[in-house]
């Protein structure tokens, strides 16, 4: 009986998780257009507003126009937001409010499959939103190089990383209100410190050292050069950090969810 009592045992997954992923996809498909527009509008408005408005005052950042600098950061942080929202609010609805997970667990699908499917789905949805933003960026001419396409797998990985972190919060949340703390104490500071809006070189040294370790910093470090048509320096390190966080956070999220639901 260790498989159930030992909440932090390794995940045991099956292909049934695809049926759970598909369930979320089918719901999304019904509302795909408003969902994409919702994920798209906010970051694009910020990018164009700040990029052209503030960009008038800033001649160049790291050798490119401010809006070209901002494009990569926007793609990375909007992916983070999309994955986080899905794992938090939608995940919590399915786990707690709608009892969707409870219904699925009565079928031959394990909780491990469900949590893994939520992870993959949140990353998929973030990736779909990211592709839409990438298309807008390309339309404005800020992703001219074919290398920009390599940003797509990177944003999927970024989605996995933040979905996994979000699922930890979902596993711990008593109610929706709890997520406010995560946004104000984690997501918003991370957005401001990870080099999305300005280069991390502007930060005081001590802050910068910490900021460079944040997962969003690694995503920005990969996405920005790719949009500018350059190979990211230390790409292997950044990819490994994002993947490592995704795996570790998923493991923790799964353990906490098992503890919550399998009692």
């Amino acid at each position: 009986m260790t498989s159930v009592t030992d909440h932090f045992a390794p995940p045991r997954l099956s292909l049934r998780l695809l049926a759970v992923w598909r369930r979320n996809f089918l719901v999304w498909r019904k509302l795909a257009l408003p969902s994409i527009v919702g994920n798209l509008a906010d970051p694009v408005i910020y990018m164009l507003g700040l990029g052209y408005g503030l960009g008038m005052l800033v001649p160049e950042v790291e050798g490119v126009s401010y809006i070209a600098f901002l494009a990569g950061g926007t793609l990375a942080y909007s992916t983070m937001n999309a994955a986080t929202f899905e794992a938090l609010y939608s995940g919590f609805s399915r786990m707690h409010t709608q009892k969707t997970w409870e219904a699925i667990m009565n079928a031959p699908v394990s909780l491990d499959d469900i949590v893994a499917a939520e992870l993959l789905w949140a990353a998929s949805k973030a990736c779909l939103a990211g592709i839409a933003i990438l298309a807008v960026i390309a339309a404005f001419g800020f992703a001219a190089s074919p290398l920009a396409l390599a940003a797509i797998p990177v944003i999927f990985l970024t989605g996995l990383c933040f979905a996994a972190l979000g699922l930890i919060m979902t596993a711990l949340a008593p109610s929706y209100d709890f997520f406010m703390y995560y946004f104000t104490l984690v997501i918003t500071p991370m957005t401001l410190l990870s080099g999305v809006f300005f280069p991390q070189g502007q930060l005081p040294d001590a802050v910068r050292t910490v900021a460079e370790c944040l997962p969003l910093s690694h995503a920005v470090a990969l996405v920005r050069p790719l949009l500018l048509g350059e190979l990211p320096p230390q790409a292997g390190l950044h990819l490994a950090v994002l993947a490592g966080i995704a795996v570790a956070a998923f493991w923790l999220a799964l353990g906490l969810t098992r503890r919550r639901l399998l009692k």
Partner: peptide, 19 residues
Amino acid sequence: SLDPDFTCAENLLVFAGYF
């Protein structure tokens, strides 16, 4: 624990997918 995002038929179809 019915899926509020789906119709009656979709609820049955999606649930069958879990099997």
